[in-house]
Amino acid sequence: MKIHLKIWRQKDRQTKGAFKDYTLEDVSKDMSFLEMLDTLNIKLIKSGERPVEFDHDCREGICGQCGVMINGIAHGPLKHTTTCQLHMRSFEDGDTIYVEPFKAAAFPIVRDLKVNRSSLDHIIASGGYVSVDTGQAPEANSIPVTHEQAEAAFDAAACIGCGACVASCKNSSAALFTSAKISQLAQLPQGDKETSKRVVKMVYQMEEEGFGHCSFTEACQVECPEDISVLNIARMNYEYNKARLLKK
């Protein structure tokens, strides 16, 4: 099928970007969206143009490295699907597709569709872990965790850190990302001991990185590849308020 593309091209953070038009003639329905971009890039390289830079790695929806705005939606039209798992069968012959990078002040553009999402790492680094050194762990079955607890913790832990929640948020908030980690660890006996310390540090870091606030439009969950629940944000707020109120 024939596809018209309007792709955001931007040399670097300082330079102004703009859409550029491309047309691909032989796009197969079985191609993934990124394979379609691969095809475009080979064409561009051969015609002496600079290929489109975009982020991707595992191409099976788990590493979280890919992610662009496709027709104004993070990861494109399918819900709960990463860009790499989106296939061209989701589009029609003759469609025009707009491709833009995730935009947020905390995600500076590197080039074209590539953005720097280190701010998410910084949030985790500020406290998104259990403080246990190698060697300190007790026998695994000495900490029983019920099936329901483990499943609930997993639901939150499934986050792939792609940043679609931030891109989909009208306030560019990283609340879903941050709360997923807080909520996962708060639901497990191993992690709960540090919850109040953790939540204060991580929320502070989230603000430091320049993310916006959460106003519960719930768009993040709808576009999240892993369908992480917005209730995690409520849980983060609960833990945060509790930590603040009970502060000694």
């Binding site: 309007k6 955001w8 859409f19 705005m69 027709n71 104004g72 707009y98 833009e100 935009k103 947020a104 002040a105 905390a106 995600f107 009208k170 306030n171 560019s172 908030s173 320049g210 993310f211 916006g212």
Partner: peptide, 9 residues
Amino acid sequence: RANGASYSR
């Protein structure tokens, strides 16, 4: 401030 540049589409 958090939004930075806006989306064109």
